[in-house]
Amino acid sequence: MNWKSFILGAAVGIIGGYAAHEVITQKIKVSPEKVLEQVKKQFKQNGPISGSWIHMEAEPYEKYQIHYKVYKGGISKNNNGSSEQYEFIADAQTGTLIDICRLSNEIVS
Protein backbone atom coordinates (compact mmCIF):
# COMPACT_ATOMS: atom_id res chain seq x y z
CA MET A 1 0.00 0.00 0.00
CA ASN A 2 1.21 3.45 -0.88
CA TRP A 3 1.40 5.56 2.32
CA LYS A 4 1.10 8.82 0.40
CA SER A 5 -2.21 7.73 -1.09
CA PHE A 6 -3.46 6.58 2.30
CA ILE A 7 -2.54 9.86 4.03
CA LEU A 8 -4.01 11.89 1.18
CA GLY A 9 -7.25 9.90 1.31
CA ALA A 10 -7.51 10.25 5.09
CA ALA A 11 -6.88 14.00 4.90
CA VAL A 12 -9.53 14.45 2.19
CA GLY A 13 -11.98 12.39 4.28
CA ILE A 14 -11.36 14.47 7.40
CA ILE A 15 -11.65 17.78 5.54
CA GLY A 16 -14.79 16.60 3.72
CA GLY A 17 -16.37 15.43 6.97
CA TYR A 18 -15.61 18.73 8.66
CA ALA A 19 -17.03 20.72 5.73
CA ALA A 20 -20.20 18.60 5.71
CA HIS A 21 -20.60 19.12 9.46
CA GLU A 22 -20.29 22.90 9.06
CA VAL A 23 -22.88 22.99 6.28
CA ILE A 24 -25.36 20.86 8.22
CA THR A 25 -25.02 22.80 11.47
CA GLN A 26 -25.25 26.21 9.78
CA LYS A 27 -28.60 27.93 10.01
CA ILE A 28 -29.65 27.66 6.40
CA LYS A 29 -32.65 29.69 5.31
CA VAL A 30 -35.56 28.09 3.50
CA SER A 31 -36.04 29.69 0.08
CA PRO A 32 -38.91 32.20 -0.18
CA GLU A 33 -40.36 30.19 -3.07
CA LYS A 34 -40.53 27.08 -0.88
CA VAL A 35 -42.20 29.06 1.94
CA LEU A 36 -44.81 30.46 -0.48
CA GLU A 37 -45.45 26.97 -1.84
CA GLN A 38 -46.07 25.65 1.70
CA VAL A 39 -48.40 28.54 2.60
CA LYS A 40 -50.37 28.14 -0.64
CA LYS A 41 -50.73 24.42 0.07
CA GLN A 42 -52.27 25.22 3.46
CA PHE A 43 -54.65 27.85 2.04
CA LYS A 44 -55.74 25.60 -0.86
CA GLN A 45 -57.24 23.19 1.67
CA ASN A 46 -60.08 25.72 2.15
CA GLY A 47 -60.63 26.64 -1.50
CA PRO A 48 -58.86 27.97 -4.59
CA ILE A 49 -56.30 30.78 -4.50
CA SER A 50 -56.56 33.67 -6.96
CA GLY A 51 -53.14 35.24 -6.28
CA SER A 52 -50.07 35.22 -4.05
CA TRP A 53 -46.83 37.08 -3.43
CA ILE A 54 -43.81 36.96 -1.12
CA HIS A 55 -41.04 39.44 -0.35
CA MET A 56 -37.81 37.75 -1.43
CA GLU A 57 -35.55 39.10 1.34
CA ALA A 58 -35.73 38.00 4.95
CA GLU A 59 -36.22 40.82 7.43
CA PRO A 60 -36.08 41.08 11.22
CA TYR A 61 -39.30 40.53 13.17
CA GLU A 62 -40.13 40.32 16.88
CA LYS A 63 -43.09 38.56 18.49
CA TYR A 64 -43.40 37.98 22.24
CA GLN A 65 -39.82 39.21 22.70
CA ILE A 66 -38.50 36.50 20.37
CA HIS A 67 -36.48 37.70 17.39
CA TYR A 68 -36.86 36.08 13.97
CA LYS A 69 -35.74 36.55 10.40
CA VAL A 70 -38.95 36.34 8.39
CA TYR A 71 -40.46 36.43 4.94
CA LYS A 72 -43.64 38.47 4.49
CA GLY A 73 -46.19 37.66 1.84
CA GLY A 74 -49.84 37.57 0.91
CA ILE A 75 -52.60 35.35 -0.46
CA SER A 76 -55.82 36.29 -2.28
CA LYS A 77 -58.79 33.92 -2.40
CA ASN A 78 -62.25 34.00 -3.93
CA ASN A 79 -64.80 32.63 -1.49
CA ASN A 80 -68.53 32.59 -2.35
CA GLY A 81 -68.33 35.68 -4.57
CA SER A 82 -66.10 37.71 -2.28
CA SER A 83 -62.37 38.33 -2.46
CA GLU A 84 -60.43 37.65 0.72
CA GLN A 85 -56.87 38.88 1.19
CA TYR A 86 -54.46 37.64 3.84
CA GLU A 87 -50.97 38.70 4.84
CA PHE A 88 -48.64 36.13 6.38
CA ILE A 89 -45.31 36.14 8.17
CA ALA A 90 -43.15 33.00 8.02
CA ASP A 91 -39.88 32.10 9.73
CA ALA A 92 -37.09 32.27 7.13
CA GLN A 93 -35.12 29.44 8.76
CA THR A 94 -37.87 26.84 9.07
CA GLY A 95 -40.70 28.08 6.84
CA THR A 96 -43.12 27.89 9.77
CA LEU A 97 -46.01 30.36 9.73
CA ILE A 98 -45.69 32.81 12.61
CA ASP A 99 -48.68 35.05 11.91
CA ILE A 100 -51.62 35.40 9.50
CA CYS A 101 -53.77 38.52 9.23
CA ARG A 102 -56.94 38.94 7.17
CA LEU A 103 -56.74 42.26 5.31
CA SER A 104 -59.98 42.71 3.39
CA ASN A 105 -63.20 41.18 2.20
CA GLU A 106 -64.45 42.64 -1.10
CA ILE A 107 -67.46 41.57 -3.17
CA VAL A 108 -66.46 40.38 -6.63
CA SER A 109 -68.92 41.07 -9.46
Rank of each mutant, 00 (worst) to 15 (best):
M1T: 04
N2F: 02
N2E: 12
S5M: 12
S5E: 13
S5R: 15
F6N: 09
F6I: 09
I7P: 05
I7A: 14
A10G: 11
A11P: 09
A11E: 06
I14H: 05
I14L: 14
I14A: 13
I15E: 13
G16Q: 05
Y18V: 06
A19I: 02
A19N: 02
A19E: 06
A20H: 04
H21C: 03
H21S: 10
H21D: 09
E22V: 04
E22N: 08
V23I: 13
I24M: 03
T25S: 12
T25L: 09
K27I: 00
K27F: 02
V30C: 09
V30K: 06
P32S: 07
P32I: 00
P32L: 05
P32H: 03
E33K: 03
V35M: 10
E37L: 03
Q38M: 12
Q38V: 00
V39S: 09
K40R: 12
K41V: 00
F43C: 05
Q45T: 01
N46T: 04
P48F: 09
I49L: 10
S50L: 05
S52V: 00
S52D: 15
W53I: 00
H55F: 11
H55M: 11
M56H: 09
M56D: 14
M56K: 15
E57L: 11
E57Q: 14
E59V: 07
P60Q: 07
Y61F: 14
E62T: 13
E62M: 09
E62K: 08
K63Q: 15
Y64N: 15
H67N: 14
K69F: 10
V70W: 07
V70F: 08
Y71I: 01
K72V: 06
K72G: 08
K72T: 11
G73R: 03
G74E: 13
I75N: 08
K77T: 10
N78C: 00
N78Q: 13
N80F: 11
G81K: 02
G81P: 10
G81Y: 08
S82M: 12
S83P: 06
S83A: 15
E84A: 07
E84C: 02
Q85V: 06
Q85Y: 08
Y86L: 09
Y86T: 01
I89T: 14
A90W: 05
A90H: 02
A90K: 03
D91R: 03
A92T: 00
A92Q: 07
A92H: 04
A92W: 05
A92K: 02
Q93C: 01
Q93R: 04
Q93A: 02
Q93V: 00
Q93W: 08
T94D: 11
T94H: 10
G95F: 03
T96C: 00
L97I: 10
L97P: 03
I98A: 03
I100L: 13
C101P: 00
C101S: 13
N105W: 01
N105V: 05
E106W: 04
E106F: 04
E106S: 05
E106V: 07
I107V: 14
I107P: 11
S109Y: 10
S109C: 00
S109D: 15
